[in-house]
Simulated scan of single mutants.
Amino acid sequence: MRISRFYLPVKLTAGSTLTPDQESAHYMHTVLRLQKGAQLSVFNGDGEEYTATVLDATGARFAIQLGAVPTSVDRESGLHTHLGLGISRGERMDLAIQKAVELGANIITPLFTERCVVQLNAARKQQRWQHWFKVIQSACEQCGRNRIPELRQPQELAEWIPGQQGLRLLLDPLNGKRLTELSPAAGLVILSGPEGGFSDKERTFALQAGFTGLRLGPRILRTETAALAALAAVQTLWGDLG
């Protein structure tokens, strides 16, 4: 039977006993109803994971003991991918981030674009970042990754584009090349637009900065679909899905 996995951002030491943070403990105890003696798996993002046992699940108390030997399991793709993702609304953005993690993205940068319908002040920007990081955390717990992808702070597209290196792909349903026309690279940057797509100005700027247009078939894909289709395609051709 598959045991539940949990990300705990603390130092993990073989054989030690620890008390998870309140939110994690509540989920383990109240939602999953883990009782004394139950097995689970924990990781902190350093690449290792521990089998753990529930020692105490009495009332508000919840404690676990880590196993004596950690397990190093590398579930990272050999293809390093950085996803620049135009910010979309609510569940669409959450879905895109969640599935990008499952598909092996190493870096995710939310981007403000001309047609972005989401406006965030400084406080809301930090709140959204924290929310998106929890989406990433949960996705890693589910898919088995022991390293947490880097979630960068939301950034203006015009500021983000010049700093990118390597094979840079702009998802362009109108004038892009097909993946079979491109050569693989160790590092890959994928730029995916928001719900309204990129403006002509943004598209031109990206192409002039060294991005190559990528066309994913004859159909227009929604924002959350396009980014995930691109990640799945490059992982199949050049990564670990082939």
Rank of each mutant, 00 (worst) to 15 (best):
21 D>S: 09
119 Q>W: 07
188 L>R: 01
32 L>I: 11
162 P>H: 13
137 Q>R: 11
9 P>S: 00
159 E>A: 14
82 H>M: 04
36 K>T: 14
99 K>T: 14
67 G>C: 05
118 V>C: 14
86 G>W: 00
26 H>K: 12
241 L>D: 03
121 N>F: 07
156 E>D: 14
99 K>W: 01
73 V>P: 08
108 I>N: 06
209 A>F: 06
42 V>M: 04
103 L>G: 00
84 G>P: 01
121 N>G: 11
146 N>C: 09
231 L>H: 10
22 Q>F: 03
211 F>R: 04
143 C>P: 10
211 F>H: 05
237 L>K: 07
105 A>P: 01
84 G>E: 02
178 R>A: 15
141 E>A: 03
115 R>H: 15
130 Q>M: 12
21 D>V: 06
41 S>W: 05
35 Q>K: 15
51 T>Q: 11
125 K>Y: 07
121 N>Y: 09
189 V>D: 01
2 R>E: 08
217 G>S: 14
201 K>Q: 15
58 T>V: 14
15 G>M: 13
219 R>Q: 04
64 I>P: 00
51 T>G: 11
139 A>V: 06
87 I>R: 08
190 I>V: 15
59 G>L: 13
172 D>Q: 02
229 A>D: 03
124 R>Q: 12
138 S>G: 11
228 L>Y: 05
142 Q>R: 05
90 G>V: 05
78 G>L: 10
78 G>E: 09
167 L>Q: 15
140 C>H: 01
29 H>P: 00
167 L>M: 13
197 G>L: 01
206 A>G: 04
109 T>Q: 12
75 R>P: 12
214 L>E: 06
214 L>Q: 10
95 L>T: 12
206 A>W: 01
155 Q>G: 07
230 A>L: 05
224 E>C: 03
204 T>L: 13
146 N>R: 01
129 W>R: 08
143 C>A: 07
9 P>E: 08
28 M>S: 00
230 A>E: 03
7 Y>G: 00
16 S>V: 08
202 E>W: 01
116 C>L: 08
85 L>M: 15
180 T>Y: 07
232 A>I: 08
140 C>D: 02
143 C>S: 14
206 A>I: 09
112 F>P: 15
39 Q>H: 08
190 I>L: 15
215 R>D: 05
47 G>Y: 08
148 I>F: 02
110 P>N: 10
124 R>M: 08
113 T>F: 08
215 R>K: 15
97 I>F: 10
21 D>T: 06
203 R>W: 03
43 F>E: 00
